[in-house]
Design a protein around this nucleic acid. Structure first.
Length: 902
RNA sequence: GCCGAAGUGGCGGAAUUGGUAUACGCGCACGGCUUAGAACCGUGUGGAGCAAUCCUUGGAGGUUCAAGUCCUCUCUUCGGCACCA
């Protein structure tokens, strides 16, 4: 009887005591480098197959809730590959580790007082136990955790290298600030204006922060994507995030001032239709007006007042306010005009927050006829202008309620001398509409031909773009530029549970690095977790004392020179810690040499395993992780530490496992499937095989408990057929039928696994078992022991516990001596092409594309076109259809089909 | 709005990459074993029709001897980005 519980406990123990999958440990003395075997495929094209395979599973945060069925899916998929490749004789590196720093443990500490290090260790222990139970063959000898000083020592080391090269730097900047979590948030952590974790409204705050200069690599981060085999969507997201745009900076003279205003545009072709300029509230001109540094000739005081008020309102706006306003436009007139050289027109300069300070030049030229936003802004201005005709003062009420309190109203804007904005059509689109643009639906952006545009008239817009760029550059008023959406990476966090930034500040506030020899710069333990708006690290006395000791040693010369207190008084450590994305941007490098004390990893180990051959990671929230990991890789390559450009050669995503109700699993919906319960009832092998059988790895699929039972029955049947059937061993014709199916199964599984087609592999294994069962029932015959072993070997990656049990019984190799000699270190079987080939095949016969008959042919005849066609013509059913008709065409595709046209 | 992925039985899905559509599993129906039950065994199961046969891969066209697969248009669903000039 199949007693999965007993079997699984037994083999888990045996694998563990034999340290079976700790490949790197076993291989240290014979470390070959990343050697390639050369093969030639059928076209004679050479390809290489690596001997060393690095399978990487997404770094996971050890959350308190433990393993869920989604983890099991992706871990099992990689585990199957790991076991398969090991049996194929490859060296497989399949490590595991923990992205252990992060907010949840700290938030929990704030709530309960339990130290994050304790919470983290507990959670890791739970995960470890569960993972082992599922039979994931991780290399536990190289387990890492980012919160371990021997790990973050190197996170800090990388920071210092960045610092030395000027790629880690400080600057002031507006940051997303969550008042509830008391921390700066990355843009990605702001969801619809609210904090990702606590749903509190996010504010903008000006702070001095540490940045990594990822923008240095922006072009290579684009071009590198050509080298990797990743899902199209994931590549597209990378490109989207970097947001490279080619355009032109056009400088317009400001009437009456000795300065120009530069606007970035990708559509200079429409510049004959430009009738205004809009600058961001952060723009220099806006600041200068508000400070009285430049003064318009008319209505100076009113304009200054209204600009000050507008800038004030804009700076107070939260992300949420912007969301709620939607795309409604607002703005103030500066009193200044820019001169359009093409048309000679005076273009009023406005300030509006729909223009972003951080993109392009922070100023745009408004072409209301051919840009929807510009059109909307023109409508807004023109409505003001109409009101102005009635009275000088208008009041705009932006009546929006925010979650907590703020009811911001813009009441008293002064608009003096507001001209109407002219809307000029310069493009006629495919709809041939050349009328005056009065409605937003007429705003044609994409395609068409130029009109009202002087020397551009008649040109198609893309030609016009090129021509005008040339023209503007020639005249010296334009310069082709490339603009990026990507910003430098803000890495500091006002948080406790993260990697300390290895920096101290002298009494004058200048920053100084903590030298490599002083690393790890440890995270203090004696901190107060109560959120105060300041980093919890400030509450550590040990941290302050340590800093003094450090500087009086490391910076004694400087202290001497400046005449500062020798005890280090007046110095302070950097209290911010690093974004956890920093920790996870290089973990795959540490894995390969995880206990190295002298380097983040030794060159020969890096060379042996990297880059990663297959990265399995969910499709969600990975844009930045991938961008940052690629950035680190390129930086460390430039530092001479790595000799490759892209860290992850191939990447695949697992889909989401949905609840039985076809909805995303969540506690509140009560549709969460707990893997422990499934293992308890049916065993880990059933859980594994079921999850692999559900469907393609990368698609979302709902849980179906009845199908789990189906898989359980399949494994049960397998056990019975291998060990308990009393049938005779076959010979003769029947033997060849079963054997053929067996060898077809070997072929099928061997071909499907590298493509990650686990579901079809399992389906074929089921077909085989069904056929085998029929043979036993109907003819009382079964497979030989040798053939049974072959079958057990090919199910071993899927159901490793069951397979080891069956294998040990079949080989009589119960390891009493403690030495493991089981199926997982046996050699993957080769299929025998002669045995897998049928001697008779069915060739379908079509007439006019419709299936009319089947022709049974001996395999030997498959290449004999004339014989086969004649045989087909001779079939009774075919004769019937051909009666009285002339055959126009006869087609035979060898081994596939006969097609007749009448 | 932009980018990306995907639409096949009652359900999850398969289809050698242009060659027998619906493999495998679930469910369902009927029969068997059993005092009974089903996580047991057997048979059947895309739709219409007594049948021959006809229809069927979101929809409409097209290419081809042959289309789930290729091309054009279109609809729907899901995911990401979004006032980025």
């Amino acid at each position: 009887m199949y007693d999965q519980k007993q079997i699984e406990e037994k083999w888990q123990k045996i694998w563990e005591t034999n340290r079976l999958f700790q490949q790197t440990e076993r291989m240290t003395d014979q470390s070959s480098n990343n050697s390639m075997k050369k093969f030639a495929d059928m076209d004679g094209k050479e390809y290489s197959e690596k001997d060393n395979i690095y399978l990487l599973f997404a770094f996971a945060y050890p959350s308190g809730s433990g393993l869920h069925v989604g983890h099991v899916e992706s871990k099992t998929a990689l585990d199957i590959l790991a076991r398969f490749y090991r049996m194929k004789g490859k060296n497989v590196f399949f490590p595991v580790g923990w992205d252990a720093f992060g907010l949840p443990a700290e938030n929990y500490a704030i709530k309960t007082g339990v130290h994050p290090s304790k919470t983290t260790v507990d959670a890791i222990n739970t995960f470890r136990r569960q993972i082992k139970r599922v039979g994931i063959s991780y290399d536990w000898a190289n387990e890492i955790a980012t919160s371990h000083p021997e790990y973050y020592k190197w996170t800090q080391w990388i920071f210092l290298q960045m610092f030395n090269k000027g790629l880690a730097y400080q600057k002031d900047g507006k940051v997303n600030w969550c008042p509830s979590c008391q921390t700066v948030l990355a843009n990605e952590q702001v969801i619809e204006g609210l904090c990702e974790r606590c749903d509190h409204e996010v504010e903008q705050k000006n702070m001095r922060q540490w940045y990594y200069q990822i923008t240095k690599y922006q072009d290579e981060l684009i071009s590198g994507l050509d080298e990797v085999d990743w899902p199209a969507a994931t590549k597209a997201q990378q490109l989207n995030w970097i947001g490279k745009k080619i355009g032109i900076d056009i400088s317009y003279k400001v009437d009456g001032l000795e300065r120009t205003i530069t606007c970035f545009t990708t559509r200079p072709d429409t510049n004959f239709g430009a009738t205004f300029v809009v600058i961001a509230p952060e723009h220099e001109l806006a600041t200068d007006i508000s400070q009285g540094k430049v003064v318009p000739t008319e209505n100076a005081q009113q304009i200054k007042d209204s600009v000050i008020e507008y800038l004030d309102q804009a700076s107070k706006k939260t992300e949420l306010d912007r969301q709620q306003e939607g795309k409604k436009k607002s703005g103030v007139f500066t009193g200044f005009y820019a001169l359009n050289d093409l048309t000679g027109k005076k273009m009023p300069i406005w300030i509006s927050d729909f223009v972003l300070g951080g993109f392009g030049t922070g100023a745009v030229v408004g072409v209301p006829g051919h840009d929807v936003r510009d059109f909307q802004f023109a409508e807004y201005v023109n409505s003001l202008a109409s009101n102005n005709e009635l009275k000088d003062q208008v009041s705009i009420e932006t009546n929006h309620q925010t979650k907590n309190q703020a009811k911001i109203q813009i009441n008293s804007q002064v608009h003096i001398h507001t001209d109407k904005i002219e809307i000029i059509r310069v493009v006629v689109g495919p709809d041939k509409d050349d009328s005056i643009i009065k409605d937003v639906t007429q705003v044609q952006e994409d395609q068409g031909k130029m009109i009202n545009s002087g020397f551009l008239d008649g040109l198609e817009i893309h030609e016009a773009t090129k021509k005008i760029m040339d023209y503007l550059e020639e005249k010296g008023i334009g310069k082709r530029v490339t603009s990026y959406r990507l910003r430098d990476w803000l890495i500091s966090r006002q948080r406790y549970w993260g990697t300390p930034i290895p920096i101290v500040y002298d009494p004058e506030g200048n920053s100084h690095p903590i030298g490599e020899e002083y690393l790890p710069w440890k995270l203090p333990v004696d901190v107060d977790f109560k959120p105060t708006g300041e980093s919890p690290l400030k509450s550590s006395q040990e941290f302050i004392d340590r800093t003094k000791n450090f500087v009086s040693d490391a910076y004694s010369e400087l202290i001497e020179q400046k005449g500062w207190d020798k005890s280090g008084e007046g110095w302070r450590p950097e209290f911010d810690t690093m974004d956890t994305f920093v920790d996870s941007s290089w973990y795959f490098l540490r894995y390969v040499d995880s206990r190295n004390q002298d380097a983040f990893a030794a060159p020969d180990q890096l060379d042996k395993w990297l880059p990663v051959d297959l990265y399995m990671i969910g499709p969600e929230h990975i844009v930045l992780h991938l961008l940052y990991s690629r950035f680190f890789t390129k930086f460390l390559r430039d530092e001479g530490c790595l000799n490759f450009d892209e860290p992850f050669l191939k990447m695949r995503h697992q889909g989401m496992i949905l609840g039985p109700d076809n909805k995303k699993m969540s506690k509140s919906k009560g549709n969460v499937i707990n893997p422990d319960e499934i293992i308890e009832k049916f065993g880990a092998d059933t859980l594994r095989v079921y999850e692999m059988f559900m469907g393609p790895l990368d698609s979302d699929k709902p849980w179906d408990i009845r199908a789990v039972i189906g898989v359980y029955k399949f494994l049960q049947k397998t056990y019975r057929l291998v060990l308990e059937s009393e049938a005779q061993v076959v010979s003769g014709e029947l033997k060849t039928v079963i054997q053929r199916k067996l060898h077809q199964a070997i072929k099928k599984v061997s071909e499907d696994l590298p493509q990650l087609k686990f579901n079809t592999s399992i389906a074929f294994l089921m077909e085989f078992v069904n056929l085998w069962q029929d043979a036993i029932r109907e003819n009382k015959v079964t497979l030989s022991n040798e053939d049974k072993i072959l079958f057990v070997q090919i199910i071993a990656p899927f159901a490793p516990f069951l397979a080891d049990e069956l294998y040990s019984k079949l080989t009589n190799n119960i390891n009493n001596d403690g030495q493991y000699n089981g199926v997982h270190i046996s050699h993957w079987p080769e299929y025998n092409p002669d045995l897998s080939k049928a001697n008779l095949v069915n060739i379908p016969v079509q007439i006019n594309g419709k299936l009319r008959a089947q022709l049974e042919v001996s395999t030997d005849l498959l290449d004999e076109e004339i014989i086969i066609i004649n045989m087909a013509l001779g079939l009774e059913n075919i004769q019937k259809y051909l009666e009285g008709r002339i055959i126009k065409k006869k087609i035979y595709v060898p081994g596939k089909i006969v097609s007749l046209v009448v």
